[in-house]
Every structure is written in C-alpha cells, then in structure tokens.
Simulated scan of single mutants.
Amino acid sequence: MSMDDYFYNGELMKCYELAKQVTNEEDKVLAQKYIRLLEEYEYDRYPKPTAHIEVQHVERADESYPESDLVVEIRAIKDEEAFAKRIQQLEEVAKTGTSADKAQSFFTQGELFLFAHHYNESVHCFQQAVKQNPNKAVYWGITGQTMHRFGWMPFDALGYLEQAIQLDPTNPRWKWNKALVLIQLAKDLQMAPFMANAALTLEDALASCGEEQKSLKAAIQNTIDNMDSYVFS
C-alpha cells in the first residue's frame, strides 16, 4: 500500500513509518508532508508495543471489559470515607506498582474521570495507561474512542484506534470507532476516499461481531444505515 492508501484508510502510523523510509526524490515531497503533519500529532512519540503477549479480552454482551470491573466496584461504594480511601489506594498503585498495575490504575482512574465528565483528565489517564502497558488493546482503543467522542482532533483518535486494531484485529468496537472518525474526516474535508474506507471498515466491524454482541452490532448497523445523513447533515 502507498502512503496515500494508508492515510485515507486511517492507518496513520503506517503512513508515517512508510514516509520515513522514502528515498525516491519523486516521493520525498509527499513523504515530508505526511511526516510534518503526523509529527504535529506526536506520532514520533507514541509508545511502542513490546514482544510481550498480552491477553486481549473480548467485549461482553453488555459492552464492558474485565478491565472495567474495578470501576464498577469503586462506583458502588456509598460511604464517602471508604470511597476516598479506595481512590487513595488507586493513586498509590499508580506510583509504586508494577507497570501492569500502574497501567490498570491509570485506566481505572480514567474511567472514573469519564463518568464524572472530566474528559481532559480522563484522556490523560488513559494515555498514561498506554505508556505503562502499550500491549493492551483496550487501553489504546478506549483512549481513541474517548478522544473522538469528546472533541479531540481526528488524527489524535485515529492513532490510538489504529494501534488497538493492530493489537486486537478481531475487535469490532475499534473498527467501528475508526470508521466513525473516517466519516468525520470525509464530512470535514470533503474527501471521498475517507468515506469509501469507512464503509469497508464498517462492513468488517459488523462481520467481526460475536453472536452475543447484539447491542454493539446494532450500533454498527445503525451507522451503516445512516452514513449519508452523517456526512450531509
């Protein structure tokens, strides 16, 4: 695939890496254009997954992941003192735990901030989770999903969603969110290739849904059914 192919398919890290390898004088102008653009979004500073094999959990029927179970437990605490103590413990783990424990702590804090509608703090915590454990797709994916839903630039969201898909290529949620960002780009920039790739990505996402993922499948189908209205509204 070419740099343009990767770019319009939302595979921006692949576009960036390919651009850095260009030696052909004819392609250098385009390559430098992509490098400058993507380095503005700090693609040169993204955490790199390691060789460690991480378990990538399947999304449950209620659209949750095991990584979110601790959030449910903490939010169920009604006593203010007990809640504050639990948050303090969570913050301590983020300082002194193993990398995996720190990552989970940051992810949990990010979700708590998300429930409290503190979106900047939420994304910051999710990004810290990715830094501590760049091998877990749900950390990347939820970061990208949150960015897209709450006003970050499309190129920010796509970088995280791309890596989530790379780590967990059968997960329909990350593909769906990628398609939503591509639709947004097609609308904002009036570039048809984004829309064409969004349609293909949505079909792939739909095909990737498990039998029990009915609500997620319905949401993806709704996006497919309303693509034109998203672009022309």
Rank of each mutant, 00 (worst) to 15 (best):
A61S: 15
L30T: 11
L206G: 04
Q104V: 02
C125I: 02
Q104S: 10
T146Y: 00
Q190E: 14
L200G: 09
F194E: 03
E59K: 10
W140R: 05
Y8I: 01
H57E: 15
C125P: 09
P134A: 14
D69H: 10
T96G: 06
N24T: 11
K28I: 15
T98P: 02
V231H: 03
F113V: 02
I87V: 14
T108H: 02
Q104R: 12
Y6E: 03
A84G: 07
F113A: 02
K95E: 15
I224W: 06
N24G: 05
A199N: 11
S233K: 15
P49E: 07
K217T: 08
E212R: 10
V22T: 13
K187Y: 03
E211C: 04
K85L: 12
D69M: 12
L216I: 07
K102F: 06
P49A: 09
T143L: 00
I53P: 01
L216P: 05
E17P: 01
E80Y: 05
R45H: 11
F115N: 00
A19F: 08
M3R: 14
C15I: 02
N171P: 00
Y43A: 07
K217G: 11
T223H: 08
E91D: 12
K136H: 08
M191P: 04
A129R: 02
D62S: 07
I35R: 04
A137S: 14
F232Q: 13
